[in-house]
Simulated assay, not measured.
Amino acid sequence: MGSFTDAVAVVTGGGSGIGRTTAIEFADRGARVVVADVDVEGGEETVTQIEDAGGEACFVETDVTDTGATEAMVDVAVDTYGRLDYAFNNAGISGPSAAVTDHDPEEWQGVIDVNLVGVFNCMKYEIAQMQEQETGGVVVNNASILGHVGFKNSSGYAAAKHGLLGLTKTAALENGETGVRVNAVCPGFIETPLLEEAGLTSDPDMREQIEQLHPMNRLGTPQEVADAVCWLCEDEASFVTGEALGVDGGYLAR
């Protein structure tokens, strides 16, 4: 397990689920963590958990659809800790389940705004800061298996995640010589509040169907995604950029 002692990480959507677990993992490895979320209570709880375990973290309320807020998020990292080494752009929403012909256009656009435009807003300022540092930095975007394949009644989410992989690869190409690496993780169905809110795990029959979509016949855990994110940030992954790493129990291998 690589050490991030004295490094600084930003995690968006850090108030719950994969974001919280990854923020805690960064801190456990020695990083100072800026937890960003629109959920103030959840974000502050993540900071409390980190501090109770002996780590260092702060919270900044951040709406990733607001460029002023994402710029301020990066400023908080630099003003508080002096730099920005790692960024995990994880904030996202699932949106309503609806066929393309039935989808409300405003709700569809809302999914795009958070899951795709929001990541662009973060990357714009994260990468600019990392480029100024002699040591560069690493950006990891939370995409999805739906960045590679479609899924019925999830057109906004799938469109956003497909776009996010294109954004990730483009930024990686632009930064091949700047010392900034840009990658994505593509989780399968993970045991998170987001999945529960979408109604995919509360019903036992539905849960079993979702589990069976994965050759490993189970859901993933937030810790498994957090470990993948942290590996992409480690020096051992120094020649990895523009990659979309599946953390999916074999889902995409079908």
Rank of each mutant, 00 (worst) to 15 (best):
T221Y: 05
A228I: 12
A244I: 01
L252K: 03
R218Q: 09
S238G: 01
G220A: 11
T241P: 03
G242M: 07
G242E: 04
N217G: 02
V247M: 00
Y251N: 04
L232G: 06
D227P: 05
R218P: 03
Q223M: 11
V247H: 01
G220V: 13
G246K: 00
L245Q: 00
N217V: 10
C233W: 06
V240T: 07
V225S: 03
E236N: 13
R218E: 09
N217W: 12
F239I: 03
F239N: 15
E236D: 15
R218K: 10
Q212M: 14
V229T: 04
E234D: 15
Q223A: 14
V229M: 07
L232Q: 09
D248F: 01
G242P: 05
F239S: 13
D248P: 02
P222V: 07
P222L: 06
L219D: 04
V240C: 06
A237L: 11
G249I: 02
G242R: 02
E243C: 09
E236M: 13
M216G: 05
L213Q: 12
D227S: 03
V225N: 05
D248E: 04
L219I: 13
L232A: 11
A244V: 01
D227F: 01
A237M: 11
G242Y: 07
A228H: 08
E243K: 02
Q212F: 10
V247E: 00
V225W: 01
H214C: 06
Q223V: 13
Q212Y: 08
G250V: 07
E234T: 15
P215V: 11
A228N: 09
M216N: 13
E234I: 13
Q223N: 14
A237I: 10
W231T: 07
D227T: 11
E224W: 11
L245T: 05
E234Y: 08
G246R: 00
V240L: 04
E224P: 15
G220T: 14
E224C: 12
G249E: 02
G246M: 06
C233N: 10
D235P: 11
A237S: 15
P215Q: 11
L245K: 02
A226R: 08
V229H: 02
L252S: 07
G249V: 08
Y251R: 07
A228Q: 11
G246T: 03
D227V: 09
Y251G: 00
L252D: 04
A244Y: 03
R218S: 08
P215K: 09
E243A: 13
F239M: 15
E236L: 10
C230I: 03
G246P: 04
E234H: 13
T221G: 10
T241A: 05
G242Q: 08
L245W: 01
W231A: 12
R218M: 10
P215A: 04
A226C: 12
L219T: 12
R218G: 07
G220Y: 09
E243Q: 11
C233R: 10
G249M: 06
Y251D: 09
V240H: 06
C233P: 10
D248L: 02
L213Y: 02
E224I: 14
Y251L: 01
T241C: 06
W231L: 15
D235A: 14
A244R: 00
E224N: 15
G220W: 00
L252G: 02
V247I: 09
Q212W: 14
D227R: 05
L252R: 03
G220D: 10
G242W: 04
L245Y: 03
N217D: 15
N217M: 09
L232F: 08
E236A: 15
Q212G: 06
D227A: 04
N217A: 15
G250W: 03
E224K: 06
